[in-house]
Computed example of a mutant assay.
Amino acid sequence: MKQTALVIMAAGIGSRFGKGIKQLAKVGPSGEIIMDYSIHDALDAGFNKVVFIIRKDIEEEFKQVIGNRIEKITQVEYVYQDIQDLPEGFTCPKERTKPWGTGHAVLAAKKVINEPFVVINADDYYGKEAFVKIHEYLVEDREKTDKMDICMAGFILENTLSDNGGVTRGICALDEQKNLIGITETYNIQKTENGPAAVEEETGEKTALDEKTLVSMNMWGLTPEFLEVLESGFRKFLSETKPEELKKEYLLPTVVDNMIKEGTAQVAVLKTHDTWFGVTYQEDKEKVMESFKELVRKGIYKEQLFS
Score class of each variant (00 low, 15 high):
Val76Phe: 07
Thr264Val: 15
Ile183Arg: 06
Asn68His: 06
Lys242Pro: 00
Tyr37His: 05
Leu43Ala: 08
Asn68Tyr: 02
Glu60Arg: 14
Glu262Pro: 05
Glu231Pro: 10
Leu251Arg: 13
Ile70His: 02
Val7Tyr: 06
Met35Trp: 05
Asp124Gln: 13
Thr4Leu: 06
Glu303His: 08
Phe90Cys: 05
Cys151Gly: 00
Lys178Pro: 06
Asp82Gly: 02
His104Trp: 03
Thr168Lys: 08
Leu174Ser: 06
Gly12Trp: 03
Glu143Ala: 14
Ala42Tyr: 01
Val65Gln: 11
Val65Ala: 10
Asp141Ala: 12
Tyr125Pro: 00
Leu252Asp: 01
Gly89Arg: 10
Val255Glu: 00
Leu174His: 06
Glu185Cys: 05
Ile189Leu: 04
Gly165Asn: 06
Ser239His: 05
Tyr301Arg: 03
Arg169Ala: 09
Ser38Met: 08
Glu32Gly: 07
Val50Tyr: 00
Thr207Pro: 08
Phe226Met: 05
Ile156Cys: 07
Thr74Asp: 02
Val199His: 06
Leu6Asp: 07
Ile120Asn: 00
Ile8Thr: 07
Phe306Cys: 04
Asp210Arg: 09
Asp163Trp: 07
Ala105Asp: 12
Ala42Phe: 03
Tyr250Met: 09
Lys98Ala: 07
Lys111Tyr: 11
Glu283Leu: 08
Lys49Gly: 00
Gln282Ser: 11
Thr254Leu: 15
Lys247Pro: 00
Glu290Leu: 13
Trp100Pro: 03
Gly18Pro: 08
Thr91Asp: 08
Ile183Asn: 02
Gly14Thr: 14
Lys144Ala: 12
Gly166Asn: 02
Ile83Lys: 13
Thr192Ile: 00
Lys242Gln: 04
Phe234Ser: 05
Ile54Pro: 00
Gln75Leu: 12
Ile150Leu: 09
Ile70Ser: 01
Thr223Asp: 02
Ser239Asn: 09
Val256Tyr: 05
Lys298Arg: 12
Glu176Asn: 14
Gly263Asp: 09
Ile300Asp: 04
Val296Tyr: 02
Met289Val: 14
Pro243Ser: 11
Glu294Pro: 05
Glu290Ser: 13
Met9Pro: 02
Glu77Gln: 11
Lys26Cys: 12
Ala198Glu: 13
Lys19Thr: 15
Lys147Arg: 13
Leu161Gln: 05
Asp44Val: 12
Thr168Asn: 13
Asp36Tyr: 07
Glu240Phe: 15
Ala108Thr: 05
Cys92Phe: 01
Gly221Thr: 04
Arg235Pro: 02
Leu270Met: 08
Lys72Arg: 15
Met35Asp: 08
Asp41Gln: 14
Ala197Gln: 10
Thr254Tyr: 11
Glu240Ile: 13
Thr264Trp: 04
Phe52Met: 04
Glu158Val: 09
Gln64Asn: 15
Val269Leu: 02
Ile181Met: 06
Val167Arg: 07
Gly233Glu: 10
Gly278Ile: 06
Glu244Phe: 11
Lys133Arg: 12
Glu245Lys: 14
Tyr281Pro: 03
Gly154Glu: 01
Glu225Ser: 10
Ile39Phe: 04
Ile33Trp: 02
Met152Ala: 15
Arg69Ile: 04
Ile134Cys: 04
Val215Lys: 04
Pro253Tyr: 07
Gly165Phe: 02
Val256Lys: 03
Ile189Phe: 07
Glu201Ala: 14
Asn159Val: 09
Lys2Gly: 12
Ala130Glu: 01
Ile58Leu: 08
Trp100Leu: 10
